[in-house]
Amino acid sequence: MSAKAMDRVATVILMTFAVLIIGLLIGLLGFILTQGWHKLSLDFITSAPDLVNAGGGIGPQLFNSLYLLVLTMIISLPLGLGAGIYMAEYAPDNKFTQFIRISIEVLSSLPSIVVGLFGLLVFVTMTGWGYTLLSGALVLTVFNLPLMVRIIEDAIRNVPQNQKEASLALGITKWKTIISVVLPAALPGIITGTILASGRIFGEAAALLFTAGMSSPDLNFHDPSLSSPTSPLNPLRPAETLAVHIWKVNSEGLTPDARDVADGAAAILVIAVLVFNLSARWFGKWIYRKMTSGA
C-alpha cells in the first residue's frame, strides 16, 4: 500500500472515530435533556425539595453545587498554579522531583471513593468539623490538584523558549518574566485545566457523600452571615450537592415523583456544566486578548 493510500485509510478511520464520539455525546446529551425537559421551570430551579409531596425543586442543591465550585477553585487554583510554576520553571531534575511526579500520578489515579474516605478521616473526623462544605471543598482539592498541576505545568512548558529568552535579554527578572510573559502565553492551557477540574467538581458525588453530607439545613437566603447555621454562605454547614441529590433521589425514592426530579436535576446539571464551560472559555479568550494585547 502506498503512502497516500495509507494516509487516506488512516484519515477515514480517525474521522469515523471522531464522528462516533460526537454522535455518542450528542445522543447522551439529547437523551438527558429530553427526559428532564418537562421539569425545567423557574419554580423547579428555585424551590426546595419536598420529601413528602410531589412537585419539589432543587434550588438549595444547585446553589450548594455552585458555592462548592467557588470554594474549591479558591483553594485549588492558587495551589495548582504555584505547583505548576515550580515544576515547570524552578524544580531541578533530580530524584526528589521524580518522586513528586510519581506522587502526582498516583494521586490522579486514586478512585474518588478512596479520596472521600480520606476526607472523612481527616477533614470530617480529625478536625471535628463534621459534614461541611469546607470539608467537601478540601477533599475535592485533593482530588483535582494532580490534574491541575500536570496541565498547568505542560501549558507553561509549551510556551516557546524564545519568548522567555527575549524577556530575560531585556533585563527582566525571571519572576517578572513568568508573570508578564509566560503565564499570559500559557493562559489557554491553564483555562483548559481549570475547566476540566471544574467539570469534575460539578459531577462528583462519591467523595462528597463522606464529607459534605447528604442533607442541607433550611437555608435563609436573606441571611449573609458566615456563622449562621441557616446562612447559605456558611462554609461550615452540611450541604447536599446536585449530583449527590440525584443519587439520593434515585436510590431512596422517598418522593412520589422521584424519577421526574432525578431527570430534571440531571438536565439542570448538564446545562450548568455546558454554560460554565462556554462562559469560562469566552472569559479566558477575553483575558488572553487583554493580557497579550491581542486584537
Results as ranks from 00 to 15, higher is better:
G27N: 08
V244H: 04
L110E: 11
G294R: 06
S227Y: 14
L254V: 15
E89K: 05
A185S: 15
E252D: 09
L69E: 02
K285M: 05
G284E: 03
N94M: 08
A258Y: 11
L274C: 08
V142Y: 07
A5V: 15
D263E: 12
I104H: 07
L278R: 02
P229Q: 00
L68G: 14
T46Q: 09
N158C: 08
T211L: 02
T230D: 04
I156K: 00
L183P: 11
S112T: 15
L187E: 01
P78G: 03
T230N: 06
N250M: 14
L269S: 14
M126A: 13
D263Y: 13
F283T: 10
L274G: 03
E105C: 06
S215N: 12
A185Y: 10
S135H: 08
I100A: 04
L25Y: 12
R289A: 12
V52P: 07
Y131M: 14
P78K: 01
V9Q: 09
G57K: 06
N234T: 11
G30V: 00
S227E: 06
W37K: 12
D93N: 12
N250Y: 13
F44C: 00
A206D: 13
R8A: 14
L226A: 05
L14K: 13
I100D: 01
Y90A: 05
L66G: 14
G253P: 15
G128H: 04
I151T: 05
L233G: 10
G136K: 04
K4P: 14
T16I: 10
L79S: 09
P146I: 03
D50F: 04
A207F: 07
V114F: 04
K39F: 03
I22E: 05
P60W: 01
F17R: 07
Q61K: 02
W247L: 11
T125L: 04
D7F: 09
I201V: 15
A186S: 08
G23N: 01
I287L: 14
D154N: 12
R237G: 08
I113F: 05
S231A: 03
A272T: 15
L236P: 14
L51N: 14
L138M: 13
I246A: 04
Q35N: 12
V106K: 10
K248F: 10
F123E: 15
A265F: 10
T127F: 04
G116Y: 01
Y131A: 06
A265I: 01
G284L: 05
I271M: 10
I179P: 07
P184A: 00
I100C: 08
N64P: 15
L120K: 03
D263A: 09
A185W: 05
A54S: 15
V270I: 13
A18H: 10
F276C: 00
A280W: 01
K164N: 07
G84C: 02
E204G: 00
A88Q: 00
F202G: 12
F118N: 04
N220Y: 01
L269D: 15
N277I: 08
G189H: 11
R101Y: 07
I85H: 00
G136C: 10
R101D: 09
N220L: 07
